[in-house]
Design a binder for these strands. Structure first.
Length: 293
DNA sequence: CGCATCCCCTGCCTGC
DNA sequence: TGCAGGCAGGGGATGC
C-alpha cells in the first residue's frame, strides 16, 4: 500500500487532470469500499468544481467549490488512473470508457475536460468520505493525525517530544499515525536502518528526558525526512499493485536497503551483517542486527 | 492508557 | 497443474 511517498506521487499525477475541472458525474460500481460511501456521495459531488488536490498523511483531499472536501484513502491496493475520452467508448453524452473498465474499478469521476478518473482497488481497504473545509480538522479521520514529516514543524525537537516516555518499540511508535503521519512498513524499516537504530529498541530510550534531542533522535529525524524525499523523487515504490496515475512504476524499490531483503548482506560500508526479518505487531520488520542497535 | 491481536478482502507466491 | 497456506504497502475494533 501506498505510504506517504506513493500517495504524494499519486497526488502530483492527478492534480493536473483534476484541478480546475468540473465533476460531471460520479459512478460507484458498488455500495462500499472498506466502508459504505456516505449518504448523498454521488449527488454532492456532481456539478462541483475541484479547486485543488492536497494531501494529509496518506489521505488525498480534493477541495471543492462549495467548501466540501472529498477525502480519499488508497488502503493497501488502491490506485487511480486517468482515462482520456475516446469517442468509441463514450456512453451517451458522458465519458465513461466502459469498454475499458477493468476488474475492481469501483469509482469513476467524469470530468468536464473529457477525462475519467478511475479508482481501482482489488482489496477494497481504501475508502472515501466527505467533509467540510472549515471543520476538516475535527473530522474523525483527521482529528488524531500527527505531524507531517515533510512539514516545517517536524524535526529533532518535536520527534524527541513524541518519543519521550514511550514504551513501545521504535517500529510501532513510527507506524503510529497519531505521532508522525504517513510512514508505513517500508519507510519505517528504511528510516531506522539509515539511522542505525534497531526497530526493537524501546522508543523512549533514544529520547532521554533532557531538553535537547541527542544524536540518535537527530539521526532518526533526518533519516525519515530524507528517505521520504528520495522516494517521492523516485516516484514512490512499486510492489505488486501500486502504480502511478500514468501507469508507470515508481522505482524507489530498487533502493531498499532492508525492506524485503531478508537474508541479503547489509549494504552499509564495513558491515558484514545479514538482514533479518522479525514480526512486530503482526507485521514484518526488516533490519540488520549488526549495525542497528 | 497503551499495546498486541485480529480482522476487513483479494491476489500472488511458495511448497507439496 | 492444482490446491492449501502464508503473506502483502493500512488502519479500526477489541481486549488485556
Amino acid at each position: 500500500m501506498p505510504e506517504l511517498p506513493e500517495v504524494e506521487t499519486v497526488r502530483r499525477g492527478l492534480a493536473p487532470a483534476m484541478e480546475g475541472m468540473q465533476i460531471i458525474r460520479v459512478t460507484c460500481q458498488r455500495p462500499n469500499l472498506r466502508f459504505a460511501f456516505p449518504d448523498g456521495f454521488v449527488d454532492r459531488l456532481a456539478g462541483r468544481t475541484i479547486l485543488s488536490l492536497g494531501r494529509r498523511a496518506k489521505y488525498l483531499l480534493a477541495d471543492l467549490d462549495d467548501e466540501t472536501v472529498l477525502i480519499m484513502h488508497l488502503g493497501m491496493s488502491g490506485s487511480f488512473r486517468i482515462a482520456t475520452d475516446e469517442a468509441d467508448n463514450r456512453i451517451g453524452e458522458f465519458y465513461i470508457p466502459r469498454g475499458k473498465l477493468a476488474a475492481h474499478d469501483h469509482v469513476i469521476f467524469e470530468l468536464s475536460s473529457g477525462t475519467a478518473i478511475i479508482y481501482n482497488d482489488p482489496r477494497r481497504f481504501g475508502f472515501m468520505d466527505l467533509a467540510t473545509r472549515s471543520t476538516l480538522e475535527e473530522h474523525p479521520l483527521m482529528r488524531a493525525i500527527g505531524v507531517e514529516p515533510l512539514g516545517n514543524a517536524f524535526g529533532p525537537d518535536l520527534l524527541r517530544r513524541l518519543l519521550t516516555g514511550r514504551k513501545s518499540p521504535l517500529k510501532a511508535a513510527l507506524l503510529d499515525q497519531r505521532l508522525v503521519a504517513g510512514l508505513g512498513n517500508i519507510y519505517v524499516c528504511e528510516a531506522l536502518w539509515r539511522s542505525r537504530l534497531s526497530p526493537l529498541r524501546i522508543a523512549g530510550t533514544i529520547a532521554p528526558d533532557s531538553k535537547r534531542p541527542g544524536k540518535q533522535v537527530k539521526a532518526l529525524a533526518s533519516s525519515i525526512r530524507e528517505v521520504l524525499e528520495e522516494a517521492i523523487e523516485a516516484g514512490g515504490s512499486s510492489l505488486r499493485d501500486y502504480v502511478q496515475t500514468s501507469g508507470e512504476l515508481g522505482y524507489f524499490q530498487h533502493r531498499f536497503c532492508v525492506y524485503d531483503c531478508e537474508g541479503k548482506p547489509c549494504v552499509r560500508d564495513g558491515c558484514n551483517g545479514i538482514i533479518s526479518r522479525v514480526t512486530q505487531s503482526g507485521r514484518s520488520t526488516f533490519y540488520c542486527e549488526v549495525c542497528q542497535v
